[in-house]
Amino acid sequence: MSKHTEVKAQSQGFLHDQRKRRIAADVATYILLGVLAVIWLLPIVWIFLESFNKNTAPYQSTFFPTEYSFDSYIGLFTDRKVLDFPRMFLNTFIISIFTCLISVWFVLSVAYCMSRMRFRGRRSFMNLVLILGMFPSIMSVVAIYFILKAIGLTSDGMTILALILVYSAGTGAGFYVMKGFMDTIPISLDEAAMLDGCTRWQVFTKIIIPMSKPMIVYQAITGFLIPWLDFVMAKVIARTQENYTASLGLWLMLEKEYINTWFGRFAAAAVIISVPIAILFIVMQRFYQESMSGAVKG
């Protein structure tokens, strides 16, 4: 066998071994991803099927239900004497909608000021916000409660307003991501618009906001999900069931006196709570894709 033939055979063997290793790595990757997908989807499938379980007891002999019915969904909205879940759901929806709108406006305004304006104390303010963001928000729960109590916002009729203020007030501090996006928008567009007679307000509303749609979508989703999923702040501020949010309602359903009769309804409520989140993601994804395609075309 010539030296050239031997080298060619060795290279073919190396390529063959490399191909085997690549196939083995791909198989191992897909197996791992499949196992992780099952682990991730199994609780979701289980809670969805459990919401249709005719047996509402929390402890059962089988993992999946054996009999199915809509009793949990029907009872969740018709039996309002013990736990008024529809009222809790409505409270949460109102709080989340207003928080979403206010937070988007706050973040846009602060990010625009930090990105486009230069003023004394700007860098110090940004550093201060960055440092404060390193501390968990739960540290301020007690202080926030006593501030709200001092101004009379912890009474039954003011709880929803108090929660909207609490969730919205600090959102402007989360301007860093939005500011980073606005920094990528050429400032020459602002200058050209001002030369044509536009004011800063017109530049902000006619140029910056339309070009920031992807980040507006992100902030809208974040602003909606924070009050929708929060438990700690709602638990501290809301004192009666009339002012409870959906997360507090779910927590009550697992209490000792309710769990045996409300566990099926707990599963049904968990499914219902996920519906607005899914709708929000679907709708916002469409706007995100449209804004990104428009940006590419521009």
Rank of each mutant, 00 (worst) to 15 (best):
I138G: 07
G121V: 09
S291W: 03
L101A: 15
L36R: 00
F98H: 05
M134P: 13
N53Q: 08
A238S: 15
R21S: 13
L33I: 14
I102S: 07
G180V: 09
C113H: 02
I216Y: 00
T56C: 08
A193L: 05
D156L: 04
S188Y: 13
L101I: 15
L108V: 07
I74E: 13
A270R: 02
L248V: 12
K235H: 14
W251R: 02
Y218I: 02
Y112G: 05
M211F: 09
P58H: 08
M114F: 15
I208K: 00
I279C: 13
R21L: 14
V142C: 12
D26A: 10
Y258M: 05
I147Q: 07
A150C: 08
G152D: 01
L36P: 07
G133C: 14
A193Q: 06
V296C: 14
R286K: 15
L128H: 05
N53A: 15
L36T: 07
S11Y: 13
L163H: 04
M134G: 15
L248S: 08
Y258D: 04
S168C: 04
S61C: 06
M284I: 04
K297Y: 13
K54F: 12
E191R: 08
K206I: 11
I272K: 06
S11M: 12
I131K: 06
L90G: 12
I207R: 00
I31M: 05
